[in-house]
């Protein structure tokens, strides 16, 4: 598409400068996009790894917990777990990946884990409860990665749109317009040339 500009040298100069800028921006954005995608793929792989680890661990822990409480009634279990003394807090910090603000979570736990005595409760419960401690950090890590991936996806999408706009709209338009103006100017130059030649001819004929 040819932009609606006056075909003169002034505009041509301006457009040429714009084209140069667009090309440079295009290259930069493309680089950014590639870098983002690289980062994104890395995060996706890490997410996959963490998720698999989580899946495996939660299955193991659930099984262990099940076996630990297998001979306890609901009443007994309630009387153990109705009264927790453990507090888990999550703190959020932000870090920067390619100008994207990505949250980082930090987990802190305090208080007693074991709030029950040692008779009439299954001994394996202690073991199981202790091992469960590794689940919460994994979950937090998963949330962190998920959020980072979502944010990165948005950014990649945005960058990609910009790159596309530059590549398929802006740069061709500018090139077309420049071509058009150049042609127009050449045309003008030719027509003025021929006019001059005719005038010269006329003068010589007299």
């Amino acid at each position: 598409m040819i932009l609606a500009v006056n075909p003169n040298r002034m505009e041509l100069l301006k457009l040429k400068r714009r084209l140069e800028l667009a090309n440079r921006g295009y290259k930069l954005l493309k680089d950014k996009r590639d870098a983002l995608i690289q980062k994104f793929i890395k995060l996706v792989y890490e997410n996959k790894r963490v998720r698999e680890e989580f899946d495996r661990k939660i299955r193991e822990r659930t099984n262990e917990f099940l076996l630990a409480t297998i001979c306890m009634g609901e009443n007994d279990l309630n009387s153990i777990f109705m009264f927790p003394q453990r507090l888990t807090k999550v703190k959020t910090e932000y870090s920067n990946i390619m100008s994207v603000k990505v949250p980082k979570y930090q987990i802190t736990e305090k208080g007693n884990l074991f709030t029950y005595g040692m008779i009439d409760t299954s001994p394996e419960l202690d073991n199981s409860l202790k091992k469960y401690q590794e689940i919460a950090p994994l979950m937090i890590k998963m949330a962190e990665l998920d959020k980072a991936i979502v944010l990165l996806t948005e950014e990649i999408e945005k960058t990609r749109r910009r790159v596309n706009a530059l590549e398929y709209v802006m740069i061709p338009n500018l090139e077309d317009t420049i071509k058009f103006i150049t042609m127009k100017l050449d045309e003008m130059a030719r027509s003025s040339n021929s006019a001059i030649m005719r005038i010269k001819e006329m003068i010589r004929g007299e």
Partner: peptide
């Protein structure tokens, strides 16, 4: 001690 665990242990001994 602020510990339910020790409280229960003490009751268990009472038992």
């Amino acid at each position: 001690y602020d510990s339910l665990q020790l409280m229960e242990v003490s009751i268990d001994k009472g038992y």
